[in-house]
């Protein structure tokens, strides 16, 4: 079952309110996904970064969310959970009439791994 919280990552800290949040996450390099991505060379899958962003939004909004569209998601650097054990997920959430526009990034210090802009709907 797909749930990354407490398995693939764990929340170290959360700050923010209203529409802007920052989650500091610890990455679990022993998660089963790394058996296959890739054998002997663990690289955090880009889609798991997207799922991480989604789960942080669900936590922030206290609601399950569907990813209706992604305008742009850039993976500017490879994320290796053995080299980079903690990441920051930054969220900027704008409510629309029927959904949310989410601008998010995943960074650690000066390094940016993911830049995301998409539309999420309440389930």
């Amino acid at each position: 079952m797909l749930q990354l919280n407490d398995k693939y990552f764990s929340v170290v800290s959360k700050e923010g309110a209203d529409n802007t949040f920052k989650y500091r996450l610890h990455l679990n390099a022993s998660h089963e996904v790394y058996k296959g991505h890739f054998p002997g060379n663990p690289i955090s899958p880009g889609v798991c970064s997207i799922q991480t962003i989604r789960e942080c939004c669900e936590d922030a909004l206290h609601n399950r969310l569907t990813i209706r569209s992604i305008k742009l998601c850039r993976f500017s650097a490879l994320l290796t959970p053995t080299r980079c054990t903690e990441i920051t997920v930054g969220l900027s959430i704008t409510p629309n009439a029927n959904d949310y526009t989410v601008v998010a990034d995943i960074t650690n210090g000066d390094e940016t791994f993911v830049s995301f802009k998409g539309t999420l709907e309440r389930q």
Partner: peptide, 16 residues
């Protein structure tokens, strides 16, 4: 080995 570099205009058309 291939890595996703960028996704543009992903649209979920209907139900999963």
């Amino acid at each position: 080995v291939g890595y996703i570099g960028e996704i543009k205009n992903f649209k979920l058309a209907g139900r999963l």
